[in-house]
């Protein structure tokens, strides 16, 4: 039985979840699309962000969003260290393509296993006053645990977009993978630029992780569920395009939500990847790709 209420609710939930997907995907869009760094460990950093939010909530009663924000400098520093290792070990020697992939696979496992050892395999969640609350606009119910991640995701997206398009660092980040030697001729150190951009991409994982654990319980290997979806978003939006990533996140969120509501959740990934295939056939650079 088709119901308009169900449809509206599914669309709104999809849009809300889309804003959250954007927060998770931005980091990958930057590292893959703008830096040519195959950081497949990004979802693991997001999970690390979730557990940071969990630990701070459990032991100190911190709000997860506050933790996410407070820890962005820590994650930035972590990003600096990871990029340094990657640069010294691979990029400087021109061996980044395949061995870099293996490196980030390694990072993914190390983070996962470390979390597993520290917290075990059980699902963890956080406590906050607003987690269970919701309000209604007409027939549409809006849960705070979805609304807040969406709003924060949007804010991160807008901030990153402004940074990339309005600042000297931002423009250099967009140029660095196109011709790093030409960038040096503009007086820019490409290694420094990549370090800043990569560290920023990891910093977004702190917030994205906090959002993830707001939405639902988290266990150490849950990142794998997100890898495929997040890559689909980044490719669909056009690698490296921030507005494209946001658009693709919302599209995917709505499509998944509609599919889950009307034909069952197990169909959702099939439909998302179906859309990805069609878009790639028609527009190989993605929706907003240059």
């Amino acid at each position: 039985m088709f119901s308009l209420d169900l449809l509206l609710n599914a669309i709104v939930a999809g849009i809300l979840i889309g804003g959250f997907y954007a927060a998770v995907s931005l980091g990958i869009s930057v590292s893959f699309g703008l830096l040519d760094i195959v950081n497949i460990a990004h979802p693991a950093f997001v999970i690390l962000g979730s557990y940071t939010a969990y630990a701070m909530n459990r032991f100190f009663g911190f709000d997860p969003l506050l933790t996410g924000l407070l820890f962005t400098p820590v994650f930035y520093a972590l990003g600096v260290v990871v990029y340094r290792l990657y640069y010294l070990g691979f990029e400087r020697k021109g061996e980044e393509s395949l061995r870099g992939l293996v490196f980030f696979f390694g990072v993914l496992f190390i983070v996962e296993v470390a979390l597993l050892l520290a917290y075990g395999v059980d699902y963890r969640m956080i406590e906050a006053r607003y987690v269970g609350q919701s309000f209604h606009i007409g027939v549409v119910g809006i849960a705070f645990r979805l609304l807040l991640p969406c709003l924060v995701g949007l804010m991160v997206t807008v901030a990153l977009h402004l940074f990339l398009s309005k600042t000297f660092y931002g423009r250099a980040i967009k140029a660095v993978s196109q011709d790093s030697q030409a960038l040096r001729l503009m007086g820019v150190d490409p290694v420094k630029i990549k370090r800043i951009a990569f560290a920023l991409s990891i910093a977004t994982a702190s917030l994205a992780g906090a959002l993830l654990i707001l939405i639902g319980p988290v266990e150490p290997s849950i990142g794998r569920e997100y890898i495929g979806r997040v890559f689909a978003i980044v490719v669909l939006g056009g690698m490296g395009s921030i507005s494209g990533t946001l658009a693709a996140s919302v599209i995917l969120g709505v499509v998944e939500s509609l599919t889950a509501t009307f034909s069952g959740p197990s169909w959702a990934p099939a439909v998302s990847f179906g859309i990805l295939l069609v878009v790639l056939a028609v527009r190989p650079a993605g929706l907003f790709g240059r």
Binding site: F168, R171, K174, Q178, D179, Q181, L185, M186, G187, V188
Partner: peptide
């Protein structure tokens, strides 16, 4: 400053973005 052989522009950036990158120093 060098105008390099083969121009070495950033093809996927706009004309304006290329110019602004020139003024990085």
């Amino acid at each position: 400053t060098l105008v390099p052989e083969g121009r070495r522009l950033f093809p996927k950036l706009t004309v304006e973005e290329n110019l602004l990158l020139g003024a990085y120093r």
